[in-house]
């Protein structure tokens, strides 16, 4: 009886309510849920590795699944080095799937694209600073040695 009540309680709890409900869901219900719901819940909670595994399973059977592709974009957007590639995928997703999606999802993807565009531009500007890494200290050292040489000649 007690275990039934416990299961019922767990059933009516949303997996993202707290850590206990999430882990209970993962232990007892996850395998019976649709892959799409699993992916959504895992991505929302931040369980990256498990989420990627589920997304891979979805994409094997449905390579054009819009939700799986979107979750994949969201996860890869966490890694700055992937931003350029992720931005491209986000554009492709928007042109292929956006029209059929709810407004909230469309807005979410648009925000993601805006963020990735800003980040890509920022990283390009940052990469342009690479020359500063060696030029500034070199220029400084040259100037300092030049000043010492000049002063030694001036006062010698």
């Amino acid at each position: 009886m007690f275990s039934c009540l416990l299961l019922l309680t767990a059933f009516f709890q949303q997996p993202l309510d707290d850590a206990v409900s999430f882990l209970t869901w993962n232990d007892t219900h996850r395998q019976t849920e649709s892959l799409s719901w699993q992916a959504f819940t895992l991505v929302s909670a931040g369980a990256e590795q498990e989420a990627r595994s589920v997304i891979r399973q979805i994409l094997v059977s449905s390579p054009d699944d819009p939700d799986a592709l979107r979750y994949s974009i969201e996860l890869d957007a966490l890694y700055p080095k992937l931003h350029s590639e992720v931005l491209q995928r986000a554009f492709e997703w928007r042109s292929n799937f956006s029209a059929a999606q709810p407004a909230a999802v469309q807005a979410s993807v648009s925000n993601m694209i805006q963020f990735l565009e800003t980040e890509t531009m920022r990283r390009d500007q940052l990469a342009a600073k690479r020359v500063l890494l060696w030029a500034a200290p070199l220029l400084g050292l040259s100037s300092l040695i030049g000043a010492v040489y000049f002063l030694s000649r001036r006062f010698a």
Binding site: D17, F22, A45
Partner: peptide, 22 residues
């Protein structure tokens, strides 16, 4: 079985950090 040891009210992301992949 870690869920049996946790109190309720902890953030769901904490639960995510307890999955084998993390």
């Amino acid at each position: 079985g870690l869920s049996a040891l946790l109190p309720s009210g902890l953030p769901a992301s904490l639960g995510a950090s307890c999955l084998p992949g993390q």
